[in-house]
């Protein structure tokens, strides 16, 4: 059961921004994560601001330079079914298709998927943990089998979003509206590590919301893929995931993005491994070297050493499906 709250429908982005600037106002796009968070008392809401009626935040459009502009309210199902997404950015289509269940994909939005809160069972389980401004991270002593192997510090969450991993590999730009106007940030700068901000997963300030996600035009030779390992074939977050976006020209890699999911508190780009690909053919020895290098510097916790092998496995699968 959820404690009482006011429910307001915003008619425009400006109105939403004004409503969200009030204390304990929460945006509702698909509300699939919002309801879980309210029910689990992850946070409280005095007001829920529905974004559903804001036309300017919907739809998928091709931009003049050949990229895509995706409204934050676009449902994951719409993204999965969109021919341009599937054709030019298969990693995003595959990531969106792997989210949760058909019902949740029908209801859940791309903006919401990027901004969902972590699944850490201490964070969700009524613990007054560091991410909720409490004084400790319970995963440090407790069962941390699903926690991070990179980027942990005073909080050990992994970022739960499949699409965030794919969009990071695809160099997406996140457009944000807020009380001080609008701004756009490269997706890599959108997510923040706990060492920078313990209680937020991204740079959104109070009153700010994601309005659009833009993808640059795909370069000739760009191939992208998303691979996700999970305990169940449906309705499950990643145990390990990898998005790869590789540009191959005349048989050789000229650009590469490899991003790990369920590995760190943010989508975790492995630039060292990416660099190893440049100028090479994507053959089996290279793939194996790169998959191994992708996990360099991983610091597994007491219960999640398996994640290192599993992440290596999904990197190898992802690269294998390209090469």
């Amino acid at each position: 059961m959820i404690p009482p709250f006011a429910y307001v429908r915003a008619r425009s982005i400006d109105e939403a921004v004004a409503l969200l600037a009030r204390p304990e106002s929460r945006p509702a796009a698909g509300a699939t994560d919002l309801i879980g968070c309210l029910r689990d008392e992850v946070f409280t809401a005095k007001a829920v601001v529905s974004l559903g009626g804001i036309e300017a935040m919907t739809g998928i459009a091709e931009t003049a330079d050949g990229g895509l502009r995706i409204g934050a309210l676009t449902s994951l199902t719409t993204i999965v079914k969109h021919a341009l997404v599937a054709g030019r950015y298969p990693a995003l289509a595959q990531a969106a298709a792997s989210v949760a269940s058909p019902q949740l994909r029908n209801q859940g939005t791309l903006g919401g998927n990027l901004c969902q809160r972590p699944r850490c069972w201490f964070f969700r389980g009524g613990y007054d943990c560091a991410r909720k401004a409490g004084d400790t991270c319970y995963a440090m002593q407790g069962d941390n089998r699903y926690h991070c192997v990179f980027g942990g510090s005073t909080c050990l969450i992994v970022h739960p979003s499949d699409t965030a991993t794919a969009l990071t590999a695809l160099d997406a730009i996140v457009s944000i509206a807020g009380p001080k106007g609008t701004r756009s940030v490269p997706i890599q700068q959108f997510f923040v590590l706990p060492e920078k901000d313990m209680t937020h997963e991204n740079v959104l300030a109070p009153g700010e919301l994601v309005t659009t996600i833009s993808l640059p035009a795909p370069r000739a030779g760009l191939v992208s893929v998303y691979r996700k390992a999970r305990a169940r074939a449906s309705w499950d977050f990643a145990l390990a995931a990898c998005a790869a976006a590789i540009t191959i020209e005349q048989g050789k890699v000229t650009a590469a993005r490899i991003v790990l999911g369920a590995a760190a508190p943010i989508p975790w780009r492995v630039e060292g491994a990416e660099r190893m690909l440049i100028g090479r053919r994507l053959d089996e020895p290279t793939r194996a070297r790169v998959a191994a290098a992708a996990l360099n510097g991983a610091t597994p916790l007491e219960h999640n050493a398996y994640k290192v092998a599993m992440l290596r496995g999904v990197v190898s699968e992802a690269l294998g499906s390209i090469g």
């Binding site: 201490f122 002593q141 407790g142 305990a231 169940r232 074939a233 309705w235």
Partner: peptide
């Protein structure tokens, strides 16, 4: 069922997502 042996003794996965009953696809 996974319990928080380190702290509270609560069931950590007392929900349909973290407690993994096979789905129709499994």
């Amino acid at each position: 069922r996974i319990m928080d042996a380190a702290h509270t003794g609560r069931v950590l996965n007392a929900n349909m997502h973290d407690y993994k009953v096979p789905t129709a696809l499994d």
